[in-house]
Design a protein around this nucleic acid. Structure first.
Length: 363
DNA sequence: AAGTCTATCAACCGCTATTAC
DNA sequence: AGTAATAGCGGTTGATAGACT
């Protein structure tokens, strides 16, 4: 791989905004000769620019098939859908949006969509609700480990986990359910003494918490796409594999050859492009994991069982660009951005408040 | 009206992937 | 197979327009 001399190292080359004259020269040349080799184009076209700059100007601005102007709702939805699968593969996304350039999409993502998703409590990287549980995970692990040791040493009574953490009043009982179920599942297999201790305490907290839970606030499915190595892990856990939405969630770029698999997924109804909500509320509501006992230890085998409690908690969105999706946004057309914001915000209030109910309560 | 802040987006930079030899 | 040249990608920057004080 040879290194290109940087444009600025080549004397006499112009940088910065293009003038209309330069644009015209470039257009004229390409219309006459095609771009050929970008490297030699500027010289032939009489431009004091580097080839790279010419290519960028042409592909991002001067190309005749470029669509200018605001992104439509359909386009925006498509971008979000595609981003959930492809991640920051702007060129791949652009390839599916005729007339839009990767640069334009990237800019639009960073200035509009990303902000909107953040505002709605969705991690724009993972497309999942933002559960900043990493801190909690390490806090739980370290504190509980320490207290477990203390507990064993002095034979004291059970420790109330939330109170121990100083988050008793705000810890979502549903999270306790989740952890309890997970650890129950795990306890039959590979649980450590710490896990068993956790389970014991969590079960107590669960009982405690049950009385406080409104029946209408049952725990929504833990997002399977947040599980590590979801495809591998999902194969045997019957509670996590049966729906379109969860399957969609298991998409991972590492397992997908982009073009082919997008098509396949689309064919299988696992992924819809471009004009359908990329995750509809109906399927959300009928997720088989919606039942409170969504992890049945008797059914659950390797997938959950092999996870540790801390690994579960550390399923909070990472900074990696792994394009996973399951919690998602369904847009309806609206007349302006504010309305769109409003709609989405309301929608996600549902998603977060009722389904996970963690973001606002935990921290 | 002037100054400051913020959002937007064209363009650049550095890197990797692909192609040519 | 190895190397160089080229194309392309994604992250970042900086100029600028518009909003706000």
């Amino acid at each position: 791989m040879g290194k290109i001399p940087c444009c600025e190292k080549i004397s006499g080359l112009k940088k910065g905004p293009w003038t209309p004259e330069e644009d015209q020269k470039l257009i004229d040349y390409i219309q006459k000769h095609g771009h050929g080799r970008w490297r030699t184009l500027p010289k032939n076209a009489g431009l004091k620019r580097c080839g790279k700059s010419c290519r960028l100007r042409w592909t991002n601005y001067l190309r005749p098939d470029i669509k200018r102007g605001r992104f439509s709702f359909e386009e925006e939805e498509t971008i979000i859908q595609l981003h959930s699968v492809l991640g920051n593969k702007w060129s791949a996304i652009a390839a599916r949006l005729p007339g839009r350039t990767d640069n334009e999409i990237k800019n639009y993502w960073n200035t509009h969509i990303r902000k909107r998703l953040m505002k709605m409590g969705i991690d724009p990287v993972t497309h999942a609700p933002r559960m900043d549980l990493l801190e909690l995970s390490s806090l739980l692990s370290s504190t509980l480990y320490n207290n477990n040791n203390n507990n064993n040493n002095n034979n004291s009574s059970q420790i109330n986990v939330p109170n121990l953490l100083g988050i008793g009043p705000i810890l979502n009982p549903n999270l306790i359910n989740l952890a309890t179920a997970l650890l129950s599942c795990q306890s039959t297999k590979t649980s450590t003494p710490t896990d068993q201790f956790l389970l014991q305490n969590l079960q107590e907290n669960q009982q405690l918490g049950q009385t406080q839970i409104n029946q209408n606030q049952q725990f929504q499915p833990f997002q399977p796409n947040l599980l590590q190595n979801p495809i591998r892990d999902s194969q045997t856990c019957t509670t996590a594999t049966t729906t379109t939405t969860s399957s969609t969630a298991f998409l991972n770029e590492n397992q997908l050859s982009q073009d082919q698999n997008l098509t396949n997924l689309s064919d299988q109804g696992l992924f819809s492009i471009p004009n359908t909500g990329y995750h509809n509320l109906e399927s959300y509501h009928h997720h088989p994991m919606e039942n409170q006992a969504f992890v049945d230890p008797s059914n659950c085998s390797n997938s959950f069982a092999n996870m540790s409690f801390s690994s579960l908690l550390s399923c909070a969105p990472s900074s990696s660009s792994t394009p996973l999706n399951s919690c998602s946004v369904t847009y309806v057309n609206s007349s302006n951005e504010d309305e769109r914001d409003s709609f989405c915000s309301n929608l996600m209030m549902y998603d977060i408040h009722n389904s996970l109910n963690i973001a606002n309560e935990l921290l």
